[in-house]
Simulated scan of single mutants.
Amino acid sequence: MTNNKIHFTGRGFDFDITDDPIIYSILNLTPDSFYDGGVNSSIDQVLDRIETEQQYGAKVFELGGKSSKPHFDDISPAEEWGRVKPYLDAIQKKFPNIVLAIDSNTNEVIEEALKSGIQIINDIDGFNSAAKLNLVKKYHPSVVTMFNGRNFDEQPDTLEETMTNFFNKTIADLESVGLDKENIVIDPGVGFSDANTLQFDLTKMRYTKKMQQFAAPIMIAISQKSFAKRLFNADSEHRLIPTLLFEAYMAQIGGRIIRVHNVKETQELIQTYKIFQDILN
């Protein structure tokens, strides 16, 4: 908990996340995502899902046109954007006030998304290029900047230092092109390591507490990740309970934006979390 107010803000939204987490729903529009590839196979299905998830309290909806699972097959910017645009057009028509994000590390797709009115860019590479920073400067979106372990030589003994250096740099870079900290969400990148070991994932989860030093909104993005397989030999259909328990732990130590596939269950988690906070107080 913190005595200072924490807001996540952007064009058309201002979420006070000082005490209570918010739900950030994942809408993968890909055939090959690790958990829900091919699930959102029709526009009407996605529109119905958004309507339902809004009733369960989801505040942000993130579109993704390319899988970023380990060893993913890259695709062209045209194919990636071609997957997203028909859904985006339909969503914006039916839900004109919706807060939308896109999960992309592709310059051309990021720019098309910004030109189309998407408010949040989630870059798994942490805006690590001048081209991306120039797009941020031009369009002034809100962002999610993630520590991608695949881009670093991760070592157990120096991982926290590496992450601290990364977040200091990425926040400074984003502030230098016009963003405020309340526009910048930071994500420790659980599950994004070439080694992909349980040790790295648990270190990143624990590091959530230290991330409060950056005074920026913190994302919890562990939904259905493979740490549950390494802990319990759980396949993707049986990872919900460990996911929820670890999300509750990360919320307790500072995470406030919960990026999830399972919105209804996450709403129940947040309600339980609030009761737990009342008991502690």
Rank of each mutant, 00 (worst) to 15 (best):
D125M: 12
D103C: 07
G189A: 01
N233V: 05
E53K: 11
E80G: 04
G64T: 11
Q224C: 09
L27D: 03
A101N: 09
I91D: 00
N196R: 09
K66L: 15
F15H: 02
I91H: 07
N105T: 13
Q267Y: 04
A221N: 06
L159W: 00
K85S: 13
I241M: 13
F232D: 00
P217W: 01
G82I: 08
A131H: 11
D123L: 06
D187P: 05
S223Q: 06
K229F: 13
I220R: 00
F147Y: 08
Q54C: 08
Q277N: 14
K137P: 05
N262K: 10
G189Q: 00
I218K: 07
K59M: 13
S129A: 05
V143K: 01
A101T: 08
L202R: 06
L244T: 12
M1Q: 13
P217A: 03
K204C: 03
I23R: 03
H71M: 14
M163Y: 01
Y35F: 15
N183L: 07
A195Q: 15
Q252F: 14
I241L: 14
A195N: 09
Q271D: 12
L179K: 03
P96C: 01
R11S: 13
S68L: 11
I102K: 04
E51I: 01
F61H: 07
V185G: 02
Q45S: 14
F61C: 06
I75N: 07
T203A: 10
S176W: 09
G189M: 00
L179W: 08
F214C: 06
G37N: 04
N281H: 15
S129L: 09
K137C: 04
Y249W: 12
A130E: 14
K229T: 11
Y87I: 11
V60E: 02
E112T: 04
R11N: 15
T164G: 06
M211C: 05
E154A: 10
E51Q: 10
A215T: 10
N4I: 10
T9G: 01
